[in-house]
Simulated scan of single mutants.
Amino acid sequence: MELGLNGKVVLVTGGSKGIGKAIAKAFYDEGAKVAITARNKKELEQCQDEMETIFTYAGDMKDEAARKELVDVVLDKWGTIDILINNVGGSNGSTVAETELNLFRDAMELNFFSTVDLSRLVLPVMKERKNGAIINITSISGRESGSKPTYNAAKAAAISFTKAMADEAIKDGIRVNGVAPGSILHPTSVWQTRVEADPEAMNQFVQEKIPAGRFGTAEEVANVVLFLASDKASWVVGATINVDGGQSKSNF
């Protein structure tokens, strides 16, 4: 299927590894102009080696000034941003009782406020062109509290924000949607660490918790992102799509 993504300017946060890198590579293979950001310069350099024309920016997306500079440098380079993928995220803390309040703040800054701020920053250029796509990578844990409380809360907020912004932005031709991955196995994932530590327990987890009978791959998430970013998904607005092999217990 021709998705019409050739030449599109795509910004992917947290794009140097895992799901973010798979998304960046998928757009790159479609002929898009891809910019990625991450904190680790060595990982960014490796991405540059693998995808020669990719643009990289080293910065912490918890930093408001870095978010603004990121958007500015991409606009300076290519003049526009057609597609924004808010992928950066991470988990911290433990139980509610044992997690300091500042860790909840950190989780919201990274997983939620970066999504809100970057989405707002790209709005003017997308409004001017009356076209654009924003895709927020959330989690099935944002719907049913399957991970650490800090992460659950931040991803739940991002899912709600996705719908709120979608209803507002579609009037200007901008589609906002989300993708909620389940347990995705890739070299830098927590699941890979757990598989290496206790393969028997992880095999039991997969058989009991994932109806499809295996972990998902980062490329399977990326494929859904590509579709949502394309005009083939022109009537998909405000949705957050589970990519989880049936793992989620949510039925709405």
Rank of each mutant, 00 (worst) to 15 (best):
G7F: 00
K8Y: 12
V10Q: 07
L11A: 07
V12D: 04
G14C: 08
G15C: 00
A24W: 01
A32W: 02
A32H: 06
I36W: 00
K41M: 03
L44W: 03
E45V: 02
M51G: 00
I54N: 03
D60W: 05
M61I: 08
A66M: 06
V73Q: 10
D76R: 09
D76S: 11
T80N: 10
I81G: 06
G90E: 07
E98H: 11
T99Y: 06
E100Q: 13
L103F: 10
L121R: 09
P124W: 05
V125W: 07
R129M: 07
G132C: 07
A133R: 08
I135H: 05
T138C: 12
E144A: 04
S147L: 10
Y151L: 06
A154F: 01
K155H: 06
A157G: 14
A158P: 04
F161D: 03
D172G: 04
G173R: 09
R175K: 15
G178R: 10
G182L: 13
G182Q: 13
S189T: 12
V190N: 15
Q192M: 15
V195M: 14
E196G: 01
N203K: 15
F205K: 02
G213F: 10
A218F: 04
E219S: 07
V224K: 09
K232W: 13
G238N: 05
S248R: 13
S250W: 08
N251V: 14
